[in-house]
Amino acid sequence: MTRPAPSPLRQDLFCALALALVFLCAPFPRLQAVIHVVLVLALAPRPGAALRTALWAAAGGWALEGAARLYPHMGGTPWADMTVALLAAWIAGRWPVESWRGWLLRLAGLLLLQTALVHGAVRLASGPHPWGTGWAWALATAPAWAWAVWHLLGPVAPPRRP
């Protein structure tokens, strides 16, 4: 069973909302990290729309780093976000999710990968830094936001080919 893909406009609206929340949640770093993960892993990836996926993911990464303002050289997070979002979109197009459990497990795996990639990219750009606990909060709350996105958008399906 493959769920129908949401409309691009609807997905863009949710991405814009999440991006605004990333800025507005700057006083709450843990919540900001969770919303950033939701934007990059669950809302931005769309099979067949790689540029749109990369732009939303990069925007999310720049928003997070811009709001945090802790790194001496920024750019690591957007690059890692773009990479993971493109990978998520390719996986969604190649192997569409068919169940809620698979959706959750895929998000958890992508979250771990994104955490490691962001850490490595920021380390390359800015130097050694602590891991932080944002990823743990995102992982702990994954069932909640995964369930919300599952019902709001539905896991993205492969593009229809004529």
Binding site: Y71, P72, H73, M74, G76, W79, L124, A125, S126, G127
Partner: peptide, 8 residues
């Protein structure tokens, strides 16, 4: 990212 922190 690879350029590093100098022009940041």
């Amino acid at each position: 990212v690879l350029v590093g922190p100098r022009p940041g």
